[in-house]
Amino acid sequence: MKLYYRLLVQFMGKGFMFVAVHPLDFWMYLVGKIIRMAFFFVFIFSIFRVAPEFAGYNFATGILIFVTYNFIDILSQTFFFRGLYHLQELVRRGTFDRALTYPISPLFYTAFRMPDPMDFISLVPVLMLLGWALTQFAQLLTPLAILLYILLVANGLLIAFALCTFLASLTFFTQEMEGVWWFYRYAVQVGRYPVEIFRSPFQFILTWVIPLGVMITFPSRALLGILSWQFVGGALVLSALLFYVALSFWRFALRRYSSASS
């Protein structure tokens, strides 16, 4: 465990060095992300101008869901998304062979070897928005609700990791993964909206099959005190199950890997 922690710190340090070497990239990416976020904020604002009650949510709760989506998305991009996405390149060039010779888990190396600290910094405006949203329903906040929110955000991250691991495993079967990753990115973006806006069967699919509801809407509902214990339990069981399935699939897919260089 200590080894993995030290490696994580090393990988993060490498990420910061990369940022320091390319300051222009850093500032451009950061400004671009903030502009994109601002545009979407204007979009949410426009929607609530048309409909002050949007699927039973008001503007502040809409912002809370948007913030939660960004929270999970940014943390996943900071730590593991890039590494798993770029597995395609390692496999194509045959450099994944080297990862298999290291005395650590190949999945750990693949996922965490290239963290993106630039994303981490874009958390600042997200946290500011979260602070604003929290002041809007301060009377609803209890220590238990805050604890549940943090637990379910971590749960959402675990689901995101499981989904990304599952997709990365497909790289061992096909080289046409670019479109699939983009599908994942757009599918996660659906989570910016409450799942309640979707009609059956889309609502069920987006809650439990591609579990965006569990990942993003559930933490917000827990914070507002409108999520039952059964759903909290269901969310935890689902993430554990998805994590187990993703790991098993990764191991199965890894056995199918044949080096491109040999």
Binding site: I47, V50, F54, A55, F183, Y186, V190, Y193, I197, R199
Partner: peptide
């Protein structure tokens, strides 16, 4: 398929808004 997903998402967002 991604385009279809975006269309469906936008459809539900605006149906709810309207």
């Amino acid at each position: 398929l991604t385009s279809l997903l975006i269309v469906i998402m936008n459809y539900f967002v605006w149906t709810t808004a309207f």
